[in-house]
Design a protein around this nucleic acid. Sequence first.
DNA 1: TGTTTAGATGAAGGAACCTTCAGCTTTGGA
DNA 2: TCCAAAGCTGAAGGTTCCTTCATCTAAACA
Lengths: 214, 214
Amino acid sequence: MPTTSLRTLQPRKTPVQERSVVTVDAILQAAIQVLVSVGKERLTTTLVAMRAGVSVGTLYQYFPNKSALLQASLKRHMHGVATSIDRVCKEYRSASLLTMGDALIDAYISAKMHNVKESAALYSVSSDLDGLAIAKAAGARGRRVVAELFATASEGLTKDPEIVATMVMAALNGVSRRLLEAKSPERELAPLREELLVLVRGYLLTCIATKPAT
Amino acid sequence: MPTTSLRTLQPRKTPVQERSVVTVDAILQAAIQVLVSVGKERLTTTLVAMRAGVSVGTLYQYFPNKSALLQASLKRHMHGVATSIDRVCKEYRSASLLTMGDALIDAYISAKMHNVKESAALYSVSSDLDGLAIAKAAGARGRRVVAELFATASEGLTKDPEIVATMVMAALNGVSRRLLEAKSPERELAPLREELLVLVRGYLLTCIATKPAT
DNA sequence: TGTTTAGATGAAGGAACCTTCAGCTTTGGA
DNA sequence: TCCAAAGCTGAAGGTTCCTTCATCTAAACA
């Protein structure tokens, strides 16, 4: 059973004039900013509205409740990452498996690291009952797309592309998370990225029948 | 700056009689149960007390506030996992690197899978401002201990043990998380565990100067 | 058995905060 | 220019829930 009915989570009003589009955008941006600065526990709708430079009433014209607001913020973030992954999956179709791995790592890591604070703050939303479903769906979608990419690899796969995608994405998630909760993610980025390449390459090699000369 | 002063988070009263020890235990267990059944959002101190079969007042004699209660629950869980890791680190000192990897995977996965619902429910606590510090500390501690283990490997390491430990633990975390948020973790356990072994073995091989005959 | 200390109770205070709505302002087109 | 629709406002209602404390019961001990 879902936490709230679907009806309750739909936007209350769809922006038609230009200014309201700006408003909705400002609210979503403000939500992230508040999330980053005070955390999910102390985030209030009034605070978000203030930060966005509008009144609470305005916020509630576009988001039926607090949960919907947070979910929308999370979706927006996830969408950004998904777009990066999708681009890679289109661009590297039929390439070699190792090339795909490298490209995925770059895309995923740089999308997450683009705004470290934001990515880190959203973990608290994605771990909640409401956010969990969104995170899971995004994960499943990413896995599916990457599995399809792997299926086109120039070398033949010795394993189910689904499971290969699962492992690669799990490793990506694990390392990203570790990176995001570091004191200084920027400092650790280079070495961890390098090592992640080694980890994934090593694994992908075991998924190929005939080893290429690398 | 921490969310709450250290003073505020210390237990209010330390159990001296046997019955109060039982009470504290019941409260902590109840907290987990409530967390599992209604989620962090809807967990209330009254609900936890009811579930534990005591009154709210009693709860507040041992936990200064709700946050402290959740933190204590998280610590308890983390401690269980840490103990498993520690045991491995003592037992496999000076063994071969690959053996260490296999043992770590088994210990970590089985500790997390011991109670799937509990592990999954606690993610919401560990992503919060309060829980984050605990989770980070536990992660750092685990990494340190595992790095020390790796440093004793019978084969020589070509890399800093710290970074090797970091990568292995990140992979473990990533896969565990994926497992815990699956619809049916039990069903996926075997294949994912198997594949995790492949992933980690492949990586550890790159950390050894001379490859052993496996 | 009497006294002291530990443990337990739960109604009630009170703060925090989500959400509404009646009314006001701005925009865009007729 | 004028009006209907879109957009905005923010004080106040209402809930939820954390936390306290005066009071009661059980245990330890002399």
